[in-house]
Amino acid sequence: MSAKSNQRGAKAPLLGSKIKLKIEKLAMGGAGVARHEGMVVFVPQAAPNEEVLAEVTLAKKNFMEARIVEVLTPGPSRREPPCPVAHTCGGCNWQHLNEDEQRKQKEAIVFETLKKFNRDLEFNYLPIQPSPRVLRYRNRIQPKFKNNRFGFFARNSHQIVETMDCLITEKTLTEHFAEVKNWAAAKNAKDLLRMEMYIAEEGDVRYGLITDEDDGIGFSQVNRFQNEDLLRTALDWAGDHAYEKVFDLYAGAGNFTFPLAQKYAGSEIIGVELNPKLVERARSKIHDKRMTYFMSDVETYMRRASIGKEDLVLLDPPRAGASEYTMQTLAAAQPRKIIYISCHPVSLARDLNWFFAHAQKMGVSYKLDRVQAFEMFPQTDHVETIAELRVDS
């Protein structure tokens, strides 16, 4: 049996082969990046600038994946994870890195991803905003229960890693783990139970099952401490212009909508959200005739939206990002300013590519003024990013 060759002529070792690798950096998804005879190798649980002995677990034409067999020379940022189950639990894939390295890698990943999709795009790239808390920051989690085992899924598995604590979760929630485990056990269910626990706006702890009919409370920012900084930045970047209308697309329960309404007292405020639970929660808090909340997916709404040149648009889409139609429609509408908040650098980079390509096609001059990464999810590879687009005058 001969080794397969990639398109550049380098040979990929066979599955199960052990190779020595030098980890260069971390990639989207959290794995370390190394090179072996011209091929890129992705190595989970690696740290930058370390040497490892790794076993090939996947060999494709132009890349490989490998698992660490032994860390030969640890990288300077490698540490023993603070959580005792971090090596097996699927919740945190970067606990083996110190926080400085986590932020450094996220800052680099966001910048490189934006440039990969938009090579000629120039922008002011601000330093990453650290999270006020690196542990005990999550206010919403989804534990699992089966056969009296309570905890979280193991990495790349549906096996439950048992734990009665979670170091990235607020203590207000973890103090209820025993109660929730007993509640789940009392159901005498044979199948896996997926649950959601969260701290409600009123401050009390709530929990329940996630089912096909009920997918939980819907999206909300899980790091309320960092969310304050993100809100402050979004409002600051939006500026002091007297906008005619302010649109909050993918508005959720109004995390940005209500602060925007408070700042822009003379503007019409429009929120657009598909999740009925979140729309109901937002509408229950509206006491201002200037505010309207539409229950709709954003693309459908954009087909009838009337966005003008003196308007502000804020959008905070899910990981999948916005659609090409949505970005093209925004470019054509030419609002005075757009604030885009993203939880996935790839979808942000793609959406910006769609936006600027369509703006150029229409002869509209827009500028990506500034971008900043936010450490919303410490101990994981996930990162929040905020971008400001404005008419280039």
Results as ranks from 00 to 15, higher is better:
E196Y: 13
E175L: 11
E175P: 01
T174C: 09
K190N: 09
M164F: 14
C166V: 09
M164Q: 13
L192E: 09
A178D: 05
W183A: 02
T174K: 09
F177G: 03
L192W: 03
L192V: 08
Q159K: 07
L192Q: 06
M195N: 10
T174E: 08
I160P: 02
T169I: 07
E170S: 10
N156S: 15
E162F: 05
N182A: 15
E179C: 01
H176D: 03
I168C: 03
H176Q: 06
T172A: 07
N156W: 02
A185F: 04
L192G: 03
N182Y: 09
E196R: 12
F177I: 12
T169E: 13
A185M: 12
H176P: 01
D165R: 08
S157Q: 05
A189N: 10
L167P: 02
M195G: 06
W183G: 06
F177W: 11
R194G: 01
T163Y: 00
I160C: 02
N188I: 00
C166L: 06
C166N: 07
N156C: 07
K190A: 03
T163V: 10
K171T: 15
E175H: 14
A178Q: 08
N182I: 04
M195I: 01
F177P: 04
A178S: 13
C166Q: 13
W183M: 14
I168N: 05
C166S: 11
H158K: 08
R194P: 01
E175F: 09
H158C: 07
E175D: 10
H176K: 12
H158T: 11
V180L: 01
D191H: 10
Q159Y: 09
A185G: 03
A185E: 12
T172Y: 02
M164V: 14
N156P: 03
E196I: 14
E175M: 05
V161C: 05
T172I: 11
L192P: 00
D191Q: 12
F177T: 01
H158D: 05
T174M: 07
K171G: 05
C166P: 12
L192H: 02
T174Q: 09
W183V: 08
E162N: 04
R194K: 04
E170T: 14
M195H: 05
